[in-house]
Nucleic acid binder design. Structure first.
Lengths: 360, 360
DNA sequence: CGTTAAGCTTGGATCGATTCAAAAATACTC
DNA sequence: GAGTATTTTTGAATCGATCCAAGCTTAACG
């Protein structure tokens, strides 16, 4: 009760307890951190003194400096903090991370910020043992910022071709191939791609140059996978519109407007995320275009929500939680080496894909 | 590059670069924390030395000890960490908390643990300036644990009658009254209540004694609200079954089994959470009982998902995000006083409630 | 009773920074 | 050029603990 209330007395330190109990601070410390090596009588005396003075136990701030380990991992993104609780992909990932952290008793610190400057500061000053980076937009900046900190970190999602950074991702080429193949086998021949960002801050129809110089290799790889499969089915990939979105509703809708303004609109849409795919389904349905009757839609990610939308989304499922678990483990068991893992993906066929309309 | 790689050299400290640059560590510190007060030439020299030695900037661990402020708030619960990303109520709350934290640049540390012992330790050792407590099950334990820590904290959701702890919640009596009144006005006269926990670790039909001695006053208040409204409409409250759940699927289903085993089953169900209500709708629908045709269901909370289920849930909406924002502000602007806030709620009528069947 | 082993305690060193009063350097005034 | 004002820099003190080598007790044994 009295610990902080009586005037401006500064908070009680371990040293104060030691003095009150008539032991050295070393012994007092032992009472709390290794009670078994302190004689019972002394231990009781110290504990009684602590109780009497309202001492809550060693302050983690002090302990931290000595121990050097925070026992928490930071999860950083350039999106606002609420992203972690609202975006389905992020949530599934966080569930995996949480699991690994729970298992070892580690905590999670969420790092983000309204503006770039604050983000830099927050990354500089986060009390964590390492970082997991959600590389959405501005991913490369995030990596640079974090590298500065000289703590272990692992990048998620977008593969940076930089082999010096640990990263965990999926086989984007294979996944995309699966998606395209599925549609081609259903009989589709006219496609459109709603892509994730190739580079920071642009949207719109994408030129082959842009693809070659893509900053985000994950996006490029998915496109490569789509095109590989198409080639095998004799589809002319040159005619396929590829529209770059920023994985949000507005840019996706803009992409759809553009794509369906064409004289020969596609009968199948390849979306590089479930988010995009679900917006597409909504947009199409609202226009009276039947899914999958008139147009099939296939996503990428395999977020839980995809199973619940109407029609349920056919998609390429990543082992999202597993990625999260591995990312957390990479930080928790950090051994100084760069670790790059690529996990497999799985085609999940649901209701949003079917044969093309006969009339087409 | 070389900072950590060359053998076992211990990491570079601020003092090292001070020596290298030929200035005192005081000056070196100023270069980073108050660059404007050091002469440009010196500043450049120190920065160059830092760069050359691969010094990433002052270690937050050291800074922390001196500054005393972590600039992060802890959010604690007895549930596993994944709760924060999966439960709709928690997510909506976290979104509000995130917003307030983003605005001031504060971080969020999630605190939880697999078992009770670890939880105690994690709360003891979390590096935070204060706690927001998600008081679900075991709420009182969580409060005790946190009180030990002697940091500011605020309890969410369940009102503890303990006036010494800050808490933010809603007017449960008024909200419950709204719910019951709505059903009564639709013409219902036979009700059942699916309640939240009254005390730790029990489920089943609830006796009046139990209600009187309820540990969770929030649960009790909602019941009081229901009954108040019923009395006003001349409904005999003695005959209303009140089944205590632990806000999960299993206990809710068990409650429904019990309730509908009756000879005169209710025509309306009052659920104390949207979670319970949604499970109820699913259970009823699966039994071929029409909602709201045969039985009306009303929830409590107003989570976003409630608008999306089929039929959309009629419920009493709490200003969840606002509660989160205020809780965060309470910690961030802590002034040493106990703050207890009660916010208003709102009846949201959707598709799950309607007049009772004619035949009943 | 002296010796040895084992168990406890001690207090200085350390973790990595920030702060602030005082000293030093520089600039300015007459 | 002395005197004063101003800007910079210094270095000791501090934040709150943990660690560990060395010293001290105590118990046991011959």
């Amino acid at each position: 009760m009295a610990s902080t209330i009586e005037g401006n007395t500064r908070p009680i330190r371990l040293a104060d307890i030691a003095k009150a109990a008539g032991v050295s601070h070393g012994t007092a410390s032992n009472v709390f951190s290794r009670p078994e090596i302190v004689r019972e009588e002394v231990r009781e005396r110290v504990k009684a003194a602590a109780e009497a003075m309202g001492y809550a136990g060693p302050d983690p701030k002090g302990r931290l400096l000595r121990a050097g380990k925070v026992n928490a991992i930071g999860v950083a993104t350039t999106e606002p903090l609420s992203y972690f609780f609202e975006d389905p992909f992020a949530r599934a990932m966080m569930a995996g991370i949480s699991e690994a952290c729970d298992a070892t008793g580690a905590g999670i610190a969420l790092v983000s910020a309204g503006n770039q400057e604050k983000l830099a500061w927050n990354i500089q000053s986060a009390l964590v043992d390492g970082f997991i980076l959600f590389c959405i937009e501005g991913g490369s900046r995030l990596v640079e910022l974090t590298r500065e900190r000289k703590l272990p970190f692992v990048a998620l999602e977008l593969g940076f071709d930089d082999d010096t950074v640990s990263a965990i991702g999926v086989d984007n080429v294979a996944g995309a191939r699966l998606a395209a193949q599925h549609l081609a086998e259903l009989g589709h021949r006219r496609f459109a791609v709603l892509a994730l960002p190739f580079a920071d801050g642009s949207t719109g129809l994408v030129s082959p140059e842009k693809v070659r110089t893509a900053l985000y290799t994950g996006t490029r790889d998915r496109l490569v996978g789509y095109f590989e499969a198409f080639s095998r089915y004799g589809v002319d990939t040159a005619g396929i519109p590829v529209y770059e979105t920023v994985n949000d509703e507005a840019s996706t809708r803009a992409g759809l407007e553009t794509i369906f303004a064409s004289a020969a609109p596609p009968t199948a849409i390849l979306a590089m995320s479930d988010r995009i795919a679900m917006v597409a389904i909504e947009w199409l349905t609202a226009r009276g275009i039947a899914v999958p009757g008139d147009v099939s839609v296939i996503g990428f990610d395999g977020v839980p929500d995809a199973a619940l939308c109407d029609p349920p989304l056919t998609t390429v499922a990543q082992p999202i939680a597993e990625i999260g678990r591995r990312a957390a483990r990479t930080i928790l068991d950090f051994d100084g080496t760069v670790r790059r893992e690529t996990l497999g993906v799985e085609l999940v066929v649901r209701g949003s894909s079917g044969p093309p309309p006969k009339t087409a």
